[in-house]
C-alpha cells in the first residue's frame, strides 16, 4: 500500500531531518488491511532512527504527538483502529517542542 508520511513539529529530527516520506507498507502476513496501529510499529522500526520514545509510548503515539490522516484529526476516524487506504496521507506533528 502506497502512503505518504509527513513528520513535523520536530519529529522529523528523529528520521534524519526528512519531513516527507513516500513509502510502501504491506499489511501483516495473513491480513489484508493495514491499521494505524500496525503503521506505527512499521514507522518505528523503519523510519525512526533515534529516540523512538519521542514518537511512541506503549502501542500508540506519545501523548502530545498529533496525527492527521488526509488532513483529518485521527481522533475522529478511529485512532489506532483506523484502516488505511491506498495513497493515504498521514501526518505526525509533535507539540512538545519549544514555543
Amino acid at each position: 500500500m502506497h502512503l505518504t508520511l509527513e513528520f513535523g513539529g520536530g519529529l522529523e529530527l528523529l528520521c534524519q531531518s526528512t519531513k516527507i516520506h513516500s513509502v510502501d507498507v504491506k499489511p501483516k502476513p495473513g491480513e489484508d488491511k493495514l491499521a494505524m496501529r500496525d503503521l506505527l510499529v512499521w514507522v518505528k522500526s523503519n523510519l525512526i532512527k533515534e529516540r523512538p520514545e519521542m514518537f511512541m509510548k506503549g502501542d500508540s503515539v506519545r501523548p502530545g504527538v498529533l496525527v492527521l490522516i488526509n488532513d483529518c484529526d485521527w481522533e475522529l476516524c478511529g485512532s489506532l483502529d483506523t484502516e488505511l487506504e491506498e495513497k493515504d496521507n498521514v501526518v505526525f506533528i509533535s507539540t512538545l517542542h519549544g514555543g
Partner: peptide, 21 residues
C-alpha cells in the same frame, strides 16, 4: 490548548521553528 494552537498553525500553514534547544 496546545493541540489547537498546533492544529491552527498546521491548517493555516504558518511557518514556525521546532528544534529543541
Amino acid at each position: 490548548y496546545e493541540k489547537e494552537i498546533v492544529m491552527y498553525a498546521y491548517f493555516k500553514k504558518l511557518d514556525y521553528f521546532s528544534t529543541e534547544c
